[in-house]
């Protein structure tokens, strides 16, 4: 299962690398082009992924299911990445920390909110004020 699935993925990646390398230009041996190295690496990857596919075809192994905590954390992180610009650093980070704290350990809601606010404030003081990182302010300019 592991080798078959990853073999398919790397085979597709190798094909993409070869296609893009040809598009970028392979050049000649005397004057190698922009796609020369990626073409060489893509060719090796194609062979290796074929070996993975062959091995994976014969083997069968199972994978443990994803835990609910991992799925929730991944969703929260992706939502944070997409909303950060629009919502702004302070509210988005406060919400992300609150969700992550809840995923890590269930506590009373106000305890999560206070801890989340404290951590947000701390990182803002260190990075925003001390190290002058310009965080996105979002639509309400916070």
């Amino acid at each position: 299962m592991r080798e078959l699935r990853s073999g398919i993925l790397f085979f597709a990646l190798a094909v993409l690398a070869l296609w893009e390398s040809v598009r970028a230009g392979l050049g000649t041996l005397r004057e190698p082009g922009s796609g020369f190295l990626s073409f060489c690496a893509g060719s090796v990857l194609l062979i290796l992924s074929a070996v993975l596919l062959c091995r994976g075809w014969k083997r069968s192994d199972s994978l443990p299911a994803h835990s609910r905590r991992v799925i929730l954390a991944v969703l929260a992180l992706l939502a944070y990445s997409l909303a950060l610009e629009f919502v702004g650093f302070l509210p988005a980070t406060f919400l992300l920390i609150a969700v992550l704290l809840e995923i890590g350990e269930a506590r009373r809601w106000w305890a999560q909110a206070v801890m989340s606010a404290l951590i947000t404030l701390l990182v803002y003081l260190v990075f925003g004020l001390l190290l002058h990182v310009h965080f996105p302010k979002g639509f309400w300019r916070m």
């Binding site: 992180l77 944070y80 950060l84 980070t93 992300l96 920390i97 992550l100 704290l101 890590g104 350990e105 801890m115 951590i119 990182v123 990075f127 190290l131 990182v133 965080f135």
Partner: peptide, 18 residues
């Protein structure tokens, strides 16, 4: 670890942004 991991995640996010 439930607090520690939150700090690691937030440091990673800020690190990448900065």
């Amino acid at each position: 670890y439930s607090i520690l991991y939150v700090l690691i995640v937030i440091l990673c996010q800020i690190g990448a942004y900065s």
